[in-house]
Design a protein around this nucleic acid. Structure first.
Lengths: 145, 145
DNA sequence: TTCCATGCAAAAACTTTGCACATCG
DNA sequence: CGATGTGCAAAGTTTTTGCATGGAA
C-alpha cells in the first residue's frame, strides 16, 4: 500500500542540523513504498534506483530516520527487524511454523494497554512486536512441515 | 525460581528414539535452574560443570528439547531468544529503552486470544513474545539515556 | 557393532566500526 | 571551505553446517 512520500524529510533533517542527501531520501522512499521491510530488502529496493548505495548507509540511515521519528521497526520473533514508516503502525500476528503474517486491529490490545498503564505505568507499544502463535493451517495440521 | 529437575528426560528421549547423553541432561538442568536464559547463558552454566561442552551442542540440544516439548523459547524484541522450561510459560513486558522486564498475568491476553481463534483460527501463543513499550521510568523521563 | 551425538572448524547471516574521500550547505 | 555523510573493507555477533571421531544401546 505505498502511501505518498511524506514531504517533511528536508525540514526534519535541517531542524536538527542534519544534511539532506539523496541516499536519505531514497531510503525513506523505499520504506514508504515497501510498507515495511528488513534493512536488506530496503537496500535492494534502493539499489534498483541507485546501485552504488552501500548497505552500511542503509543501516545508518534507518537508525537516523528512526531517531527522527520518521520510521520505526518491529520484530517478528525471528530474524531481521522490519522497518516501516511511522504512520504504518499496525499490529500483526505471525505463525511460528510457516511464518504467515496477518494484520489485526490494534484496538484489540486496548484493554491490555490500559491495564499495563494503570498497574505498572507501562506504556504499551502496540506496533512493536507481533503476536506469535499458530495460523489456522499449521494449528490444524500438526503433521505438515 | 529453580524448579526441581523434571525426571522425564530419559524416557522422553527413548520414546522417540533419541539417546540420553550427559550433555542433554546438563543443558536441560541448566535451563531449569536458570529459569530462563539465552543459548550463551545456558552454555556458560553448562561450562561451569563440564567445560568441554561446545556451544554448538547447546544450540542443537535446545532445538531438540524444544521439539520434545521440554523447553520453549521466547523473544524479547531485540537480541537472542530466551529459553525456558515448558512449565515456566509466562507473559512479559519489556521496556524498549532500558530493557526492564516484568512478569504480567497471561490472562490479560485471553480476550485477544479468543478473538484471534474465532476470527482467524489463529492459536495465540501467549508466552512467546514479550509486550514491548516503555516502563514507567523511561516513559516519564524522556530525557535520560 | 551400529548409528546417533559431539566437537571442531568453517561458513553464514546480520550489523557495526574505522577510515579516507566525497559532498552538502 | 569545513563539517558531515558515504563507500569500502574489515571485524564483531550470533547461529548453522559439514565432517570425522566418539559413545550410547
Amino acid at each position: 500500500m505505498p502511501t505518498p512520500t511524506p514531504g517533511g524529510l528536508p525540514e526534519t533533517l535541517r531542524a536538527r542540523g542534519y544534511r539532506l542527501t539523496p541516499q536519505r531520501q531514497m531510503v525513506l522512499d523505499a520504506v514508504v513504498e515497501l510498507g515495511q521491510g528488513t534493512p536488506e530488502e530496503i537496500g535492494d529496493r534502493v539499489h534498483g534506483i541507485s546501485p552504488g548505495v552501500n548497505i552500511t548507509t542503509v543501516y545508518r540511515t534507518l537508525e537516523l530516520l528512526e531517531q527522527l521519528g520518521l520510521v520505526r521497526h518491529r520484530h517478528f520473533g525471528h530474524g531481521a527487524p522490519m522497518y516501516h514508516a511511522s504512520d504504518y503502525d499496525t499490529l500483526h500476528s505471525v505463525c511460528h511454523r510457516c511464518g504467515e503474517v496477518a494484520v489485526i486491529p490494534g484496538e484489540l490490545l486496548q484493554p491490555v494497554a490500559q491495564w499495563l498503564v494503570e498497574e505498572h505505568g507501562f506504556a504499551l507499544d502496540t506496533g512493536h512486536i507481533a503476536l506469535a502463535g499458530l495460523c489456522a493451517t499449521c494449528a490444524g495440521d500438526p503433521s505438515a512441515e
